[in-house]
């Protein structure tokens, strides 16, 4: 297919997708609309996490970094009285700055040690929130965080406290963020991140300062995690240290691994699929106490039977669809995937 046609093709698909996303809340119940807001925020969280994993490092502190954005944004709007949109941006910047400061000790480590080191650093930050009532509010955290308020346009009042309106705000912010993340990945800097991951010695040999790029990926990822935290804080209105504990981190980790991180859409698939299963399907079925068990079983089955993540299904499905649609002239011999 010529490139232009393919581009207009993908643009058309994107338009359909967004039409669906805009219509989506009207097909949902109130509680499902709330879950939709959280899902949107979590998509940004897991996608920012993916940027870090591009350089080959897996962190256990990402949710705490998200919390840094949430706390910073909450304090900026509540204690300093700054407008909420500005506070959110400050939340992202502060999260990025904290990551930058942490990167000096953390990037002396790699692999398993980085994983554990990031966990330790995150827990220390969380304990500091717990310990210092002023300004972090101690174990109870910060309450009555200002929301986006209401605006009046020509007689209409738009209340951003409503899940549907907040969903549109979140969708816009997340879309812009994802677009930026996508631009980064498709650019030379994204190529360099991949290079640092796959062959850091070779990258060094042609002048890549691998440590610098690892730090860059970490800081950018943390900025967007901070933005997602800020989105969360001004929606729920209350944040506390437990909201950002390691269990939440485990969710992010499993979204990324179950979805797969090789493609841009993998973690989105993972997050959406697991959130829908956990918060909608299992909840509807009413297995309240058994919910973690089903979730655990799904995790185990997915790593056992789908080790390359949900994303590895997409090419297979689209191949099936294409075969069904076009009734292809002599069937091409496709190397069987997963036959190894």
């Amino acid at each position: 297919m010529p490139e232009e046609r393919r581009n207009s093709h993908s643009l058309a698909w994107l338009a359909v997708l967004y039409a669906g996303l805009i219509a989506l809340p009207y097909a949902l119940s109130y509680s499902q609309q709330e879950i939709l807001v959280f899902t949107t925020i979590n998509v940004l969280l897991v996608m920012s996490y993916r940027l870090l994993t591009l350089t080959g490092e897996w962190s256990l502190g990402h949710v705490v970094i998200m919390g840094c954005g949430a706390y910073a944004s909450a304090l900026a709007s509540k204690a300093l009285g700054l407008p909420v949109p500005l506070s959110m941006l400050i939340g992202g910047v502060i999260a990025g700055l904290i990551a930058w400061a942490l990167s000096y000790p953390l990037f002396r480590m790699k692999g398993f040690y980085f994983l554990i080191g990031s966990f330790a650093a995150g827990e220390i930050i969380r304990l500091l929130w717990k310990r210092f009532r002023d300004p972090f509010g101690g174990p109870k955290g910060i309450k009555r965080i200002p929301d986006l308020g209401t605006i009046e346009i020509g007689g209409f009042t738009i209340d951003f406290y409503e899940p549907v309106t907040y969903y549109y705000v979140a969708l816009a912010v997340v879309s812009v963020s994802l677009f930026i993340l996508w631009r980064i990945e498709r650019s030379p800097i994204g190529l360099t991140f991949h290079a640092v991951h796959w062959q850091d010695k070779l990258a060094e040999s042609v002048g890549v300062d691998t440590r610098r790029y690892r730090i860059q990926a970490f800081v950018i990822a943390s900025f967007f995690a901070g933005i997602s935290g800020a989105l969360l804080a001004h929606y729920v209105g209350t944040i506390n240290p437990n909201r950002f504990n390691v269990e939440e981190m485990v969710y992010v980790l499993t979204w990324a691994i179950v979805g797969g991180t090789a493609t841009f859409y993998g973690p989105i698939l993972g997050a959406v699929a697991l959130i829908v299963i956990n918060d909608i399907l299992l909840r509807e079925l009413g297995f309240d106490q058994l919910r973690p068990m089903f979730y655990g079983l799904i995790l185990i089955c997915s790593v056992l039977f789908l080790p390359k993540g949900l994303e590895s299904l997409v090419p297979r499905i689209s191949r099936l669809v294409r075969r069904g649609n076009h009734n292809p002239s002599p069937p091409k011999v496709q190397p069987q995937e997963g036959a190894e």
Binding site: R183, I184, S187, P188, I189, L191, A195, A203, G207
Partner: peptide, 20 residues
């Protein structure tokens, strides 16, 4: 292209705004 790193000088601004 990765080999050209030193001349390419990938930057964040370049990635986002495409001014590189």
């Amino acid at each position: 292209v990765v080999g050209c790193h030193l001349n390419l000088r990938p930057s964040l601004a370049g990635a986002i705004f495409g001014n590189d």
